[in-house]
C-alpha cells in the first residue's frame, strides 16, 4: 500500500499557490493537513500528478476576531481550533464538535480548510459551519469569492470550490449572549465518523427559540440545514410541536444506507437527536421522550 508517484511543490505565497492551481487545474491536489488525502494516496484511490503543499502559507494559520466575525484561516489545525480562546468564546460549538474529530494525532495535522474542502458528508465541521451560518472564503487568481456554507457543500466530497480556487478562511458571526449551542453524534467508537450527528446553534428568548439552526450530518450527501427548525421557533415548544418538527425533519432527510445503518435507522436517530437537542437547549427533559418499557 504505497502511493503512486507524483510531483511535489510547496509554494511559499498564496499568489504562487493560486498560480500553480491555475496552471495544473485538475491534475493537482492541494495538500493541506493531508489527513484525508494521504490515506487516499496510500490506498491509490487518488493518484494526482501534482501535489501542491500549502503547508508553508503561514498567513492562513491565523484565528482572529474582528468586526463581529471570527475568522479561522484554512491552515488552522484542528488542535488550534480546539485550544483557541477566541473559538471558546465566540464559537464554542466548534470546540464541542472538535473533540469528536478523529484522534489527537490526527487533530495535530488536520486543518479546517482541508476538512471543509474534503466535504465528507459525515464530517462534523461542515455541519457546524452551516449551523453557525459561516461564510467560506475562497480565492483564485481572479479574486475572492465568499460563499454561504450551505451553498458551499454540494455533494459527497463535492464543493463549490473550483480546481483553481483555494479555500483560505471561514468567517463565523460571533455568538451573542443569548446564543446557545448543542452538539451530539452517534458514533460506534471514539473518533469514528458518526452514524448521525447534529450541530445546532440557537438564540433563546426566554423559554423559546428566537432562532434555531440545525446542522445535521451523515444524513445525506451533504450537511443539512434542517428547515424543520421553523416548527420550533417563536413560541414555547410543546410535545406536539416537536413531533411536527420531527416529522418535517424526516421528510427532508435523504440518508444513504451503509454498513452501519439503513435509511430508517438514520431517520430514527436524527429524530432522536432533534428531541435531545431541543430538550437540552431548553432545559426541558420532558421533551426528550426516552423510550421505556
Amino acid at each position: 500500500m504505497k502511493a503512486s508517484a507524483f510531483s511535489y511543490i510547496r509554494p511559499t505565497t498564496i499568489d504562487d499557490a493560486l498560480a500553480l492551481l491555475a496552471q495544473y487545474g485538475e491534475q493537482a491536489k492541494v495538500l493541506s493537513g493531508g489527513q484525508s488525502l494521504m490515506p487516499a494516496l496510500n490506498l491509490r484511490l487518488s493518484a494526482p500528478e501534482w501535489l501542491v503543499d500549502i503547508g508553508g502559507l503561514s498567513d492562513l494559520r491565523t484565528i482572529a476576531v474582528s468586526r463581529g466575525l471570527l475568522r479561522i484561516g484554512a491552515l488552522a489545525r484542528h488542535v488550534d481550533v480546539l485550544k483557541s480562546a477566541d473559538v471558546a468564546e465566540h464559537a464554542p460549538l466548534l470546540a464541542d464538535a472538535m473533540v469528536h474529530v478523529a484522534h489527537p494525532a490526527i487533530r495535530n495535522k488536520g486543518t479546517m480548510g482541508g476538512n471543509l474542502a474534503h466535504a465528507d458528508p459525515a464530517s462534523e465541521m461542515p455541519a457546524c459551519m452551516i449551523a453557525l451560518d459561516a461564510v467560506i472564503v475562497v480565492r483564485s487568481r481572479a479574486g475572492e469569492r465568499r460563499l454561504q456554507a450551505r451553498d458551499f457543500f454540494i455533494g459527497i466530497y463535492e464543493t463549490a470550490l473550483a480546481a483553481e480556487e483555494l479555500l483560505v478562511a471561514v468567517e463565523i458571526p460571533v455568538a451573542n449572549q443569548n446564543s446557545v449551542r448543542f452538539f451530539h453524534e452517534y458514533a460506534r467508537r471514539n473518533g469514528d465518523y458518526a452514524i448521525v450527528g447534529l450541530a445546532a446553534s440557537a438564540t433563546l428568548d426566554g423559554g423559546s427559540f428566537a432562532d434555531l439552526r440545525l446542522g445535521f450530518f451523515a444524513v445525506g450527501d451533504r450537511p443539512l440545514l434542517a428547515t424543520a427548525a421553523r416548527h420550533l421557533i417563536g413560541r414555547p415548544v410543546t410535545a406536539a410541536m416537536l413531533a411536527e418538527a420531527q416529522a418535517a425533519l424526516e421528510a427532508e432527510l435523504d440518508p444513504q444506507e451503509d454498513q452501519q445503518a439503513p435509511v430508517a435507522m438514520r431517520k430514527h436517530l436524527a429524530r432522536q437527536l432533534l428531541a435531545l437537542c431541543v430538550a437540552t437547549l431548553l432545559g426541558r427533559a420532558d421533551l426528550e421522550a426516552r423510550r421505556s418499557a
Binding site: 452517534y186 460506534r188 452514524i195 452501519q260 445503518a261 439503513p262 430508517a264 435507522m265 430514527h268 423510550r291 418499557a293
Partner: peptide
Amino acid sequence: APFGATVTEIPLTPRLILTALGTI
C-alpha cells in the same frame, strides 16, 4: 428483557438492537 426483545446474532450492532426492539 423489559421490552421482550432477544438478540442471538453477533456482532451486536445498534442496527441489530433497534431491529430487535422493532424501532426500525
